[in-house]
Design a protein around this nucleic acid. Structure first.
Lengths: 207, 207
DNA sequence: TTCGGCTTTGACCGATTGGTCAAAATGCCA
DNA sequence: TGGCATTTTGACCAATCGGTCAAAGCCGAA
C-alpha cells in the first residue's frame, strides 16, 4: 500500500492525488461494483496498467478513498464543544454538515453507497470509531437538556436527524432537483433556513 | 414485456412473483450493476436461462420492480387530505413512512440505490409523476400554514425532511445499528417518539 | 554519453458477465 | 394414450471484467 506520505517522489504524490480525485468521481457515481478499472484509468488519464502501478487493486483505491474521507467527514462533529452555547453548537454543526452536502456531494454519495450496501469495507470502523464519538457528543447534548438549556429529546436520534436531513440534499440531489424543478436552481439557501427553523423550534427552550 | 396480468398462466404469474421477490432481495442489497443474473436466478431457485425465459433481460426485471414499487411508495402521501386535521395528517404521514422503513427496508434501499446513482431508470417518472404530486400536497400544507393551523415553514422542504428522516432508518440501517449498538435491538419505537416530537414542535401552533 | 532506476505501455490471461439456442422435459387437454 | 404448447436445461457465445508481464520509454546523476 502506498498510503504513507514518506518515501514518495513528487510524481508519485501527484499521480496518487490525481487517481484519488478521479476515483472519487467514478465511485461516487457508480458505486464500487458498478465502477470498472478501465473507467477509473480513463478518468485519471492513465492507462490501466499504469493505474495499477500506483495502486495494487481496484479495492485498494476504494479503501484508500474511504479511509482518507472518514476524518474529514466527522470533523464538524468533533468540534461540538460542551462549553459553547448549546443551540449555537447544534446549529453550527447543522450548517457545517449542510455545507458539506453542497460542497462535497461526491464524498457524501460515496459514503451513502457504502453504507447502503451494508458497509462491507467500513463496518468495523463504524463500531470502533464512530460509535464512541457519537456516544460522547450525545452525552454532552443530554447534559445540556438536563440543565434545561435545550428542550429534551433523544440525543442519538437528534444526531441521526442532523445526518439524514443534511446529507439528503447531496445523496438525493436528483430527486430534490426533479421535485423543485428548474425554477429553483439552488435549493441550499432555503434548505438552510428550513433546517435552522426546524432545530430551533425543536430545541430552543424559549418561545 | 410480461408486465400485463392478462393472458398469463398460473405458472407464469407465480414464477414472475417469485422472481420479483428474489430480485428485490438482490437488487436492494447490491444495486443494479452490483447484481448478476446468476445471483438473481439462484435467489429465485431458477436456472439462468429459465429466469430469462420470463424476463427478457436483467434490466427488465429491475424496471419491472421499480415500476411496481412507485405506486406503493407514494400511497401514504396521496392520502394527505386537505379536509383533515393538519397536524394529524402530517403525523399520520410521518408514521406511515416510518412504518414503511421498518417493514419494507428493501424497497427503500432499492429506491435509494436508484436515486443515488442519478435515477437512470426513473428520472423521467420523478419529473412527470412525483413533482405534480408533491406540488399538490405542498399547496395543501401551505394553505394550512396560511390559515394559522400550522406554524409557517417551507412545505417542499418539510416533505423532503419527512422523506429523509424516515427513510434514513432503512437506508442507513447498518450505521444506525452500529452507533446504537447491540443494546438497542430495535430503534423504531424511539425513532417514532423522536419524530413525532420533532414535527409537533416544528408545526404545532399551540405551545 | 552512458548508466540504472522509475514510469508507461500493448498484448495478453483466466474468470465472469449478460444473454442465446437447440434440445429435452413437463404439463395439459382430448 | 397421444399430441401439442409451455417450461426447463446444459452447452455455448462474445464481450467485459480485474489483473499480469515483459519490454520499451523516460529521467537525472555521473
Amino acid at each position: 500500500m502506498k498510503d504513507s506520505v514518506a518515501g514518495q517522489t513528487r510524481i508519485q504524490r501527484n499521480k496518487i492525488a490525481t487517481i484519488t480525485e478521479a476515483a472519487l468521481d467514478v465511485f461516487s457515481t457508480y458505486g464500487f461494483r458498478g465502477s470498472t478499472v478501465d473507467q477509473l484509468a480513463r478518468a485519471a488519464n492513465l492507462s490501466k496498467p499504469n493505474l495499477l502501478y500506483y495502486f495494487p487493486s481496484k479495492e485498494a483505491i476504494h479503501t484508500h478513498l474511504l479511509n482518507g474521507l472518514l476524518d474529514i467527514w466527522l470533523a464538524p462533529m468533533r468540534k461540538i464543544d460542551a462549553g459553547g452555547d448549546p443551540l449555537d453548537e447544534i446549529l453550527t454543526y447543522v450548517r457545517a454538515k449542510l455545507a458539506m452536502s453542497r460542497d462535497m456531494p461526491r464524498e457524501s454519495r460515496l459514503f451513502a453507497n457504502e453504507v447502503l450496501q451494508g458497509a462491507p469495507h467500513t463496518r468495523d470502523t463504524l463500531s470502533s470509531d464512530l460509535k464512541p464519538l457519537v456516544d460522547e457528543k450525545a452525552a454532552i447534548i443530554r447534559g445540556w437538556m438536563d440543565q434545561g438549556a435545550l428542550k429534551p429529546s433523544d440525543p442519538h436520534h437528534l444526531i441521526f436527524s442532523i445526518w439524514s436531513l443534511t446529507q439528503h440534499y447531496a445523496d438525493f440531489e436528483v430527486q430534490v432537483g426533479a421535485v423543485l424543478g428548474p425554477e429553483v436552481p439552488d435549493p441550499f439557501p432555503a434548505a438552510e433556513d428550513y433546517l435552522v427553523t426546524l432545530f430551533t423550534r425543536l430545541l430552543s427552550p424559549d418561545a
